[in-house]
Computed example of a mutant assay.
Amino acid sequence: MGGNTFGLTDRDYAVLLLGDADLEAQLRAIRGQLHQHAQADAALQDDIKDLAERASKASGEYGMHLENSWVDEMHGSVFQDAAQSASAIGMLAPLLESLFVGIFGGIRDIEPPVRPVALAGTRATRASDPDFWDPHFVFSAKGKKSKDVLRGIVQLIETTGLAPRMPADYAQMLGAIFGYRNKMLHHGFEWPPAERTKFEATIGRQGWPSNWFDRSQTNGETWIIYMSDVLIRHTLTRIDEMLDGIGAFIQARYP
């Protein structure tokens, strides 16, 4: 991690681009909430294990009662996991989206108006467009623009020359986060069967690691799809790495 005579790190430079947004506080809050999720999950699993042990030792009506309670807890755990997954994606996806909106807005604001940033690629020809620095938009080779935050972020990263400072799989990670966010936002915990099938196909087509998502099944078919702990940890790690890379990019360009 780089620094300078003022004692600022690469990450500090990236955070400064965001202006008044307190990214560090947001990340601490997210990590704290995720820790609470893990504690709640551990407590529920202990309850389920205890019920299973008691049911195995009991008999008669009481044994049936314990077994039914165990089934209910198992069923409930499916939806607790779904709620926690929805909460995680509901925190991480907006943070990533707002991160890049802020970063590119910051780069725009520090550029002298008489000297545009060194741009390359399709988007470079539209530098005068009022939405040029907005990653919600992507520009086509024909000059048309449309809303697509994933492609807009990637296009701006490539246009500005920031790509070499990004983790190798940053686009893949963002695709998984935004893709899953859209499904949970529109379909809740139990997606229509066709949407589950589409998302499974997307995972394969995009080459996302299989352990980025967990699943509950019913009758041998996918029922509920969760954002896994692996993907959550991976995303938080990549956020740290992207901040370091963005800060290094800024220091190199504006020493």
Rank of each mutant, 00 (worst) to 15 (best):
W133E: 09
T159V: 01
V78T: 12
T159E: 11
F79H: 12
A82G: 02
D134G: 04
P112G: 05
A171R: 09
G90S: 03
E73R: 15
L174H: 02
F104W: 01
L174W: 03
I107A: 02
D109I: 00
H65F: 14
G105R: 07
F79A: 03
L150N: 07
F104I: 01
G76P: 09
S140Q: 10
S98A: 11
L156I: 03
G105P: 06
L150K: 12
A118I: 05
R165E: 14
V71L: 14
F132Y: 09
L95C: 07
Q84A: 09
S146T: 12
A163R: 14
L66C: 09
S69M: 13
E111Q: 14
D148L: 05
R108F: 10
G175V: 12
D148M: 01
A88D: 05
L174Q: 07
I103H: 02
S140P: 07
F104E: 06
A127R: 15
R108L: 02
M74Q: 13
S77F: 12
D131Y: 09
L119G: 04
D129K: 02
G161A: 02
T159P: 11
I157M: 10
A163V: 05
A86L: 12
S98P: 03
S69E: 14
F132C: 09
L99T: 02
H65R: 14
A88V: 07
L99Y: 02
H136P: 02
I157G: 14
A141R: 12
V114K: 10
P94K: 02
P164E: 11
R115L: 12
A118D: 14
Q80D: 05
P116Q: 09
R151S: 14
V149N: 08
V101S: 10
H75Y: 12
L150C: 03
L150V: 10
S140L: 10
S87T: 13
E97P: 07
S85C: 01
M64W: 06
V101E: 13
V154E: 15
L174M: 11
R126A: 15
A127N: 07
S85E: 01
G90W: 00
G161S: 04
S146W: 05
A118V: 05
G90R: 07
K147T: 15
R165N: 11
F139D: 04
